[in-house]
Design a protein around this nucleic acid. Structure first.
Length: 497
RNA sequence: GCCCCCAUCGUCUAGGGGACCAGGACGUAGCCCUUUCAAGGCUAAGACCGGAGUUCGAAUCUCCGUGGGGGCACCA
């Protein structure tokens, strides 16, 4: 716990895509700060760009956040004292504040056409200059500009950036950053269609919603001075600005593109939260993993539950340098958190993955499987591949593997038959009742125990690797074990000819 | 081209002048355990980008390079 005053933080996604790792980590930190300080976590939808709006995206974001366990206190679905929480429902508010800026001389209407701007930009680029607005409409007398606006002439509202001096902006993890004003642009605040841009809308909302800490990606650093200028123009007190380090692709070369993201999916990995869920990752692991990219607690503690994070997260320990995404570490955390799950909990989570793979698991069997399954799972969707044979009607042993190295087919057949005899003589097959007789059999036949276990494993599971075979047989039951062994014997018999 | 950020093992990081011949984790390799596979335990290899300063002393502070990254929209 590092914050003593209640913090109001907001996660403000744009419904143009899906929640990805970077956003999830920002939301996580937001959540942690709000919870540990007894403040509020606000969800705000930044949907002022009507062209890029994606139907369903808002719901997708909320689903993903819910899955991660990051419940918000105020948002479009539940309302709150500072609503509405959808920017598309706040259009008039932004216009009103834009007008205020025009009247105070901090902004001005610009009548330049997109065509002129495009031409200007390409000329500047040709001259290897920094592309920016040339101030064409900056000095139109206010009365004249107002008249043109009143006459309905198409226009945007631009911020009137000071031409000299500099701004020093304070970032919580980087300290002061100074920008020269003459390097800054007269950015557009309101588009010609009347919709405010981020530079205005987000500042107005953060102020109106009494946000105390703005956490956002480091890609906002270049426009940081603009935002500080906007705050100053309004005479508002600034929030604490926190620019989170960027996530780089696993190679460390650049940030993730849509294309890279699609490419990742081929390896069973993804930066999209709802994909991670489908891939068998659990939210505990995703949160733990994401929390540690850009933040650390000390020099050795790495396992954290959400509750641990609420308690231990310290905004002052954020790291400014970019981090390459490391999926093998996610696998590690996933295994770790799966092993920490209560067995009933694991059962509930793993069941859908069996069903999805086409099995019809019953809870009683599942429950018996948990102890042997739990330490073997990296992801939940590993479950049907390592343990699907529990629910298969029949298992198809591989004839080659039924005959281990240094064992002849006739020996293997003999072994299978004797195994059948030994096991059928048992009241039931368990580790306690079965292991010694089987080992004795191996010795009697002059086979290595491992070879005999191998034959048994292949016959019963149809796999070369499986959970320990006696525990497995105990769960499957003597009857099924014998049936499968009989099937293996038949396969071995046909091999003899 | 311009502006901004960053810089410790392959990766995520601890380190905020002497406690560092730099600690942890993932991954990799080996060993132990072992009926296979995991899990678990142990061990190993592996880093302070370079150069100047400041200082008795620098991974830690300053500057300059270099490298990497981000941004330069009527997107967010």
């Amino acid at each position: 716990m590092t914050l003593t005053k209640p913090a109001r933080v907001r996660f403000a996604p744009s419904p143009t895509g899906r929640l990805h790792l970077g956003g999830a980590r920002t939301a996580l930190y937001d959540y942690l700060i709000a919870r540990q300080s007894g403040g509020q976590f606000v969800l705000r939808i930044e949907d002022t760009d009507r062209k890029r709006f994606l139907p369903g995206a808002e719901q997708e974001f909320m689903d993903a956040l819910h899955w991660l366990g990051l419940q918000w206190d105020e948002g479009p679905d539940i309302g709150g004292p500072y609503g509405p929480y959808r920017q598309s429902e706040r259009k008039e508010i932004y216009l009103q504040y834009a007008q205020q800026l025009v009247e105070s001389g901090h902004a001005y209407p610009c009548f330049c056409t997109p065509e002129r701007l495009e031409k200007l930009r390409s000329e500047q680029q040709a001259r290897k200059q920094q592309p920016r607005y040339d101030g064409h409409c900056r000095n139109i007398p206010p009365e004249e500009a107002a008249a043109r606006v009143a006459a309905g002439e198409p226009h945007v509202i631009r911020f009137k950036m000071p031409r000299d001096g500099s701004v020093t902006c304070h970032d919580l993890i980087r300290g002061d950053i100074t920008y020269r004003n003459d390097q800054l642009d007269d950015s557009i605040l309101v588009k010609s269609d009347g919709w405010a841009l981020y530079h205005l809308a987000a500042m107005v909302d953060d102020h109106l919603m009494k946000i105390t800490h703005v956490l956002r990606g480091a890609e906002w650093l270049p426009t940081f001075p603009l935002h500080v200028h906007v705050y100053r123009a309004f005479g508002w007190e600034q929030p604490e600005w926190v620019h989170l380090s960027l996530f780089l692709k696993p190679s460390g070369k650049g940030k993730m593109s849509k294309r890279d993201a699609a490419e990742l999916m081929k390896d069973g990995r993804s930066v999209y939260i709802t994909d991670l869920r489908g891939l068998g990752y659990i939210p505990e692991a995703v949160n733990n993993w994401a929390a540690l990219m850009g933040w650390s607690y000390d020099d050795h503690t790495e396992f954290f539950t959400l509750a641990d994070l609420v308690e231990k997260f310290d905004i002052r320990r954020l790291n400014p340098s970019p981090a390459a995404i490391n999926f093998s570490k996610l696998d590690h955390f996933n295994g770790l958190h799966i092993r920490h799950l209560d067995q009933e909990d694991l059962l509930r989570r793993v069941k859908p993955f069996f069903e999805q793979a086409g099995y019809h698991p019953d809870d009683a069997t599942l429950r018996k499987m948990m102890p042997i399954l739990q330490p073997r799972l990296k992801t939940l969707d590993d479950a049907p591949v390592v343990a699907g044979f529990f629910f298969r009607e029949e298992v198809e042993p591989d004839p080659q593997r039924l005959v281990p190295k240094k064992v002849t087919p006739p020996q293997a057949l003999e072994a299978a038959k004797r195994l059948y005899e030994v096991l059928s003589a048992l009241p039931e097959v368990t580790l306690e009742s079965g292991e010694q007789p089987v080992r004795a059999l191996a010795e009697e036949m002059g086979l290595k125990a491992g070879a005999l276990f191998g034959i048994l494993r292949e016959a019963v599971t149809g796999q070369a690797v499986s959970p320990p075979i006696f525990e497995t047989m105990e769960i499957i039951g003597k009857e099924t074990v014998l049936k499968r062994l009989q099937h293996a014997i038949e396969i071995l018999e046909t091999m003899q000819n």
